[in-house]
Amino acid sequence: MAEESTDFMDSDDYTNVINGIRYPPHVRRENMEAMAEFDIRDDDIVMVAFPKAGTNWILEIVHKILVTSGKIDASSSDDMVAMGKLEFQYSQEPRPRHVMLQECASPRVILTHLAPDTAPPGIAHPQNKVKIIVLMRNPKDTAVSYFHFEQKRRSMDGRKPLPSWDEYCQLFLAGKHTYGCYFHHVLGWWQRRDDPHFLFLKYEDMKKDLPKAVKTVSAFLQVKLDDASIETIAHACTFSSMKGTLENSRFYDRAVIARKGLVGDWNTMFTDEQNKLFDQKCKTKLEGTGLHFDFE
């Protein structure tokens, strides 16, 4: 790999730097500062994931479980996205999402990419009946997916593209891309694995057995579904079905999210050297933590 270059990110006007971490422009300093005071309700359902780890996938599953059980009447997962992105505020919106969420009926479905040390205390340290679903994806596929998504977004917005894939790998491993260090994020949440408020899911396990994942999520949410309903939801949440749903989203950033949805797609991008660097990073950061990922 080439020598590390930070010139691109240092001069990139697309990012906001808040307490040393880069965020997309729709994550503003004043919204991050408000996280400390965000009130969590007892029946909130929160979905946590590093970007490109499957947020929209788990959102679709939760949406269909809640609709099937009659707990909500949102007509599509777009309705959840319209309110649920906790730390976001888009330029066309007069108010940030954390303010809009205060007016939402319960049960609220909240989405966040924040790590525990930046998330609201009621999410990082939940009490009572709050439910937190943490979805994790192996870092190699996460990096590849993130790279392609950012390139699409930048092309659509008329902005300069990301640096080369090789440079992007360096940024990702160094924690200098948006939302900071992948390993800090996943390990921060993983420390809560014995807390019953949390359910941890892996993208790779969901790909292997989606009906099992749907059943696990519904049980965690204390929603009773028969086998037929679980199979119906699982079928509707396969990648091929989800791709059509997302491409027809009224939000343009959701419309470009789905690409391949594969486990092991990193093989199409990684050089041998990049693979070795990621393997070494995984060994350094994950060894002894009990957190393991499938890469194929």
Rank of each mutant, 00 (worst) to 15 (best):
A2W: 05
E4S: 10
S5A: 11
T6V: 12
M9R: 15
D10I: 05
D12K: 04
D13Q: 15
Y14L: 14
V17K: 13
I18D: 07
I18Q: 02
G20M: 12
R22P: 03
P24D: 03
P24R: 08
V27E: 05
A34I: 07
I40P: 00
D42K: 01
D44Q: 00
V48C: 11
A49V: 12
G54F: 04
W57R: 00
E60T: 00
I61P: 02
I61M: 12
V62C: 07
K64S: 11
S69R: 06
K71C: 11
S75R: 15
M83T: 09
M83C: 05
F88V: 14
Y90N: 13
Q92E: 13
E93Y: 00
M100K: 14
L101I: 04
Q102C: 12
R108T: 01
R108E: 00
V109N: 08
T112A: 12
T112E: 11
T112Y: 10
L114R: 01
A115W: 02
A119Y: 09
P120C: 10
G122K: 06
I123D: 03
A124Q: 05
P126V: 09
Q127R: 03
N128V: 04
K131H: 03
L135G: 04
R137N: 02
R137M: 05
R137T: 03
A143G: 07
A143C: 15
Y146G: 04
H148M: 08
Q151G: 11
K152V: 08
R153Q: 09
R153L: 08
S155E: 13
G158C: 06
P161Q: 14
L162S: 01
S164N: 13
D166H: 13
E167V: 10
Q170G: 15
F172V: 06
G175F: 08
H177E: 15
Y179C: 05
H184W: 05
H184V: 07
H185R: 14
V186K: 07
V186S: 01
V186F: 06
G188D: 09
W190E: 03
D194P: 01
D195T: 04
P196G: 12
P196C: 13
H197A: 00
L199Y: 02
M206Y: 05
K208N: 14
P211D: 01
A213G: 09
A213Y: 00
V214I: 09
T216F: 07
V217F: 06
A219M: 10
F220G: 03
L221I: 01
Q222A: 14
L225C: 01
D226W: 11
I230Y: 07
E231Q: 15
T232E: 08
A234V: 02
A236M: 07
S249R: 10
R250C: 11
R250Q: 13
A255W: 11
V256S: 00
R259N: 01
K260S: 08
V263F: 00
G264L: 04
D265A: 12
D265C: 09
M269G: 11
M269H: 15
Q274D: 14
N275R: 14
K276S: 10
L277K: 12
F278G: 04
K281V: 07
T284M: 15
K285W: 12
L286R: 10
G288V: 10
T289P: 09
L291E: 08
L291Y: 09
H292T: 15
D294Q: 13
F295L: 08
F295E: 04
